[in-house]
Every structure is written in structure tokens, then in C-alpha cells.
């Protein structure tokens, strides 16, 4: 029997879906850990990014944070955090994942406010809006497409990265893959392949669903982000910066 057959057989066993550590409960685990991490990331990155965009400072810091976050392996934070005062359990995993959600959220919040047409800002000021009113009534609404875009990138990235929690036995769909490897490829190969398919499917689904929600909720006039902006501010920067 080939590995593909093994994977199909594994997926067709109802117990593999309904067991306490089966596909259904693993997916639930995966989703709630991801949701918590994205929520935490938003709570930190959005106010900070919007404020930095509003005062027009900190662009370099956004780039530094983005670049640095690329160099730090997720696996390292996932193994280090449980051994600190945070302790074992979902808290450490959520915290580690949320750190990787921050760069896209921060960069897009900053860019969204920064990219507001200076003339629009001037007009607002000319109408007598205070700085706070300008932020709330002009800058924030115009930044919504960027915020939405950052949210989608961060959410998809976190759902993808949450797979790695399996390295520290932290739950989620990645566990199916790591358990499969644990059995050895000869007997666990089908499970490994099946787990890979489930994870890929979940991530593509989340990406699709979020894109649809974004399309449905954003008013046409605000759908300005035509091409996906580069995954980060740094991507758009010339070499040597």
C-alpha cells in the first residue's frame, strides 16, 4: 500500500476524527489558540501602530521589529517561553504566537494611518477638528482597509505557525503530524501525510474565509488596497536600508 492509500485509510477511520485527541478536537484547539494569539496581537499592535502613524514617527522601528522577527525561529520562542515564569500550557504558546502576529498588524496599522492623503488631513484640520477627532473621524476610517489586510495576513500566519506548537506537545493539528513521525514513517507515514493535508486545508480555508469577509464587510469606497501590499514594510524597501 502506498503512503497515499495509508493517508486515505487514516482519514476514513471515524475514530481518528472523534477521539479525544482526534481531528475535531485538535482543530478546535488549533483555532482557539490561534484566535487568542491574534486577539492579543491586535490589542498590542493596533493602538501602537495607529498612534505611530498618527504622530508620523517610528517607521524605522516597525522595519526593525519586522526584520528581527524574521530572524528569530518560532520554534525557539515556543520552547523558551514555557520554561520562563509564564509556565507550561496554552498561555506560553499563545504569547509566543502573538509575537509573530505583531509585525504585520503593526506595519499595516502604521501604513494605513500614514498613507492618509495629507490634503484630507489638512481639510479636517481646517474644519477645526482636534487631533483626537482627526484620528477618530478621518484617519482611522481611512485606515480600515489596511487594518483588515494586516489582520488577514496575521491571522493566516498565526494559524499556520500554530502547527509548530506540536514541537512542545502544545496541541493543535500539528500534533497529528508529529505523532505520525513519532510512529516512524513506515507505519506513521499515512498519518503524517493526512495531518499535512488537514493543516494545509485549514490554512487555505481560513485565508479564503477571511478574504470573503473582508470583501463583504468593506464598503466599496474603502477597498483601496488593490494589490496586496508586500508582506511587510521591509519587503518594499531597497537593499541597503
Amino acid at each position: 500500500m502506498s503512503v497515499i492509500d495509508d493517508a486515505i485509510v487514516w482519514l476514513n477511520d471515524p475514530l481518528n476524527w472523534t477521539n479525544p485527541d482526534g481531528i475535531i478536537s485538535r482543530t478546535g484547539e488549533h483555532l482557539w489558540i490561534s484566535a487568542a494569539a491574534v486577539a492579543l496581537g491586535c490589542a498590542v499592535a493596533w493602538p501602537l501602530g495607529v498612534w505611530m502613524g498618527h504622530v508620523g514617527r517610528g517607521g524605522a522601528a516597525v522595519v526593525t521589529v519586522t526584520n528581527l522577527s524574521r530572524a528569530v525561529p518560532t520554534v525557539a520562542l515556543l520552547t523558551i517561553f514555557p520554561l520562563t515564569a509564564i509556565g507550561f500550557g496554552p498561555k506560553a504558546i499563545i504569547l509566543a504566537l502573538s509575537l509573530f502576529a505583531i509585525p504585520p498588524l503593526l506595519a499595516n496599522a502604521y501604513l494605513g494611518v500614514r498613507e492618509v492623503d495629507p490634503e484630507v488631513r489638512d481639510a479636517g484640520r481646517g474644519m477645526g477638528l482636534s487631533a483626537w477627532q482627526l484620528l477618530r473621524k478621518v484617519e482611522l476610517p481611512l485606515a480600515v482597509p489596511y487594518l483588515a489586510n494586516g489582520f488577514r495576513i496575521a491571522a493566516v500566519q498565526v494559524v499556520a505557525t500554530a502547527t509548530l506548537a506540536a514541537f512542545v506537545n502544545g496541541g493543535g493539528l500539528g500534533m497529528i503530524i508529529s505523532r505520525g513521525f513519532g510512529l516512524g514513517l513506515a507505519s506513521g507515514g499515512g498519518q503524517v501525510l493526512a495531518g499535512g493535508m488537514l493543516v494545509a486545508l485549514l490554512c487555505l480555508t481560513i485565508e479564503g474565509v477571511l478574504a470573503l469577509i473582508e470583501k463583504a464587510l468593506l464598503p466599496k469606497s474603502l477597498r483601496r488596497v488593490k494589490h496586496r501590499p508586500p508582506a511587510s514594510v521591509a519587503d518594499a524597501l531597497p537593499a541597503g536600508s
Binding site: A166, F181, G195, G196, V199
Partner: peptide, 12 residues
């Protein structure tokens, strides 16, 4: 969009 772990799981 496909996580690295899943990709390795496809290939291994």
C-alpha cells in the same frame, strides 16, 4: 499559506 511543517509532512 501552507505551513512549513505541513509541507515537510507532504514530502517526507
Amino acid at each position: 499559506t501552507v505551513p512549513s511543517l505541513a509541507l515537510f509532512a507532504f514530502l517526507a
